[in-house]
């Protein structure tokens, strides 16, 4: 069953029926926002049932759009979050990515600024590596990007999309080894993105991110995961009721190959490991549970079929 990421927007009236319908179709709700009289659901639903779902919500005046970034966690990395330089263009990038369903985390490096003096420490490196993809929002000068990009990417294993003021060709020329994606004409500027040209640049980021992620999904399809991250999310939600008392907007953050569980590792890791997915199969059999470098969260990394010989 191929699951498609979608965003549903509709009124509060009868929205519980929409939630039930998604679950009946075999889909999963990744995130639910209650905004005054409006409900926004980010969900994964079976590809074959999208039209059926559209028919179901038509009388409720709801709206369904495909959101390719639902179920992904993206790091927006910026050399510094210095107060002098607010607003940062990265703020708008992170916000815009959220509108299409991605969960974004902004990572302002402690010593990322400057050309000669820029550095990346081990904590920053590990936190970036916990994401599905990283977007490096660098500045306006080719000379600086050329020198500092290699320093800031040291040890990063996830695909990187590089943005900067120089055009894409120039960015490609100065990066060796190449990054996974490039967006030019998007460097440091001091205004909020309001004009059509600005929005166009943000759209280019979404397009590049979607392109890179679809490449990763294709690779994953060659050796599928032992369980879908969305399904594992449901298992944890049912098996660990304490997750309901976490105040974070996404207590369980779905990633392409795993989950971030926003509960303390020391207290809950064993409980999650011993949850039963199906008869005779525990979460610990199909996923690696390890501490996250982000606070004291838990990182669940789902193992591929080739390693477990299990698909549930």
């Amino acid at each position: 069953m191929i699951l498609i990421p979608i965003t549903y927007k509709g009124g509060v009236y009868r929205h519980d029926e929409v939630v039930d319908y998604i679950e009946d179709l075999g889909g999963y709700i990744v995130q639910k926002h209650d905004i005054a009289q409006e409900i926004v659901l980010q969900a994964l639903i079976p590809k074959d049932d999208v039209e059926r779902f559209r028919d179901f919500i038509r009388p409720l005046a709801g709206e369904v759009t495909e959101s390719p970034l639902v179920g992904t966690e993206i790091a927006v990395v910026i050399p510094s979050l210095e107060i002098h330089h607010l607003p940062h263009s990265a703020c708008d990038i992170a916000e815009y990515l959220r509108t299409v369903g991605a969960k974004t985390n902004m990572i302002g490096l402690a010593r990322g600024f400057g050309k000669r003096i820029s550095q990346l420490n081990d904590e920053e490196r590990d936190v970036i590596n916990e994401h599905d993809l990283a977007i490096y929002v660098l500045g306006n000068f080719e000379t600086c990007i050329e020198q500092k990009f290699n320093v800031l990417r040291r040890g990063i294993r996830v695909p990187i999309i590089l943005t900067g003021a120089p055009p894409v060709d120039a960015l490609k020329r100065i990066t060796d080894p190449p990054a996974a994606g490039y967006v030019g004409n998007l460097g440091r500027f001091m205004h909020r993105t309001r004009t059509d040209a600005d929005i166009g640049r943000l759209d280019a980021v979404i397009e590049e991110v979607s392109h890179v992620l679809s490449g990763i999904r294709d690779e994953l399809a060659q050796d599928p995961l032992s369980i879908s991250p969305a399904r594992l999310m449901e298992v944890i939600k049912e098996g660990v009721p304490d997750i309901d008392s976490v105040y974070s907007p996404t207590p369980l953050t779905v990633q392409l190959t795993g989950l971030r569980v926003k509960l303390p590792f020391t207290r809950y890791a064993d409980q999650i490991r011993s949850l039963v997915v199906e008869e005779g199969i525990l979460v610990g059999d199909i996923a690696e549970i390890r501490p996250s470098r982000m606070r004291d969260y838990i990182l669940v990394q789902i193992k591929p079929f080739s390693e477990t010989h299990i698909v549930v």
């Binding site: 306006n140 080719e142 000379t143 120089p166 055009p167 440091r188 500027f189 001091m190």
Partner: peptide, 21 residues
Amino acid sequence: ECFEEIGRDFYRQITETVLLD
């Protein structure tokens, strides 16, 4: 003034925005 044209244009824009703000 800057030998990198694109960087120069971006900094011109930044300066205008900041002085106005």
